[in-house]
Amino acid sequence: MKAKGKVFRYQDNVDTDVIIPARHLNTSDPKELASHCMEDIDKDFIKNVKNGDIIVADKNFGCGSSREHAPIAIKASGISCVIATTFARIFYRNAINIGLPIMECEEAVKGTEQGDELEVDFDTGLIRNLTKGTTFNAQPFPEFMQKIIAADGLINYIKTK
């Protein structure tokens, strides 16, 4: 499985309150959530995001609340993958559980700017920056998590057991 798209670049500690502000949590409709995704730190995000695009951020992406609405909003906005130096742990498991691919790779984060074109191979962990002509290797997921992602999320994984 591969993803290819333009990069939206963010800094450290992007929290779930800015990914999807709590004032919009009176719904769980993915499309409606996506329409407010990132609006408190980047009001142009939702105007400019296209299917397949990639979020790249520094440390501790997704810190704060356990709201699964955060990865749901990102996924429904069309984002194909989030690459960060580190993820907050609840966001990490939520993303795995709903089938939003995420990768930890500090080198790729450091070597990527807003608007770069990236290609990501989830099977090998290979990240190519097509704009800069550089490549990076992310740690592939442990087998257990690969199974959950292959089943398109935890619920389907449970059903297959």
Binding site: G64, S66, E68, I90, R93, N94, N97, I98, I158
Partner: peptide, 24 residues
């Protein structure tokens, strides 16, 4: 809910998860 970690005060292991984990 992310603040589920509160019950660690009682010597329990408790942790916040998302909705899919709750469902499972």
């Amino acid at each position: 809910d992310s603040h589920t970690c509160t019950y660690g005060a009682l010597g329990a292991f408790s942790t916040g998860v998302g909705s899919t984990d709750m469902a499972a």
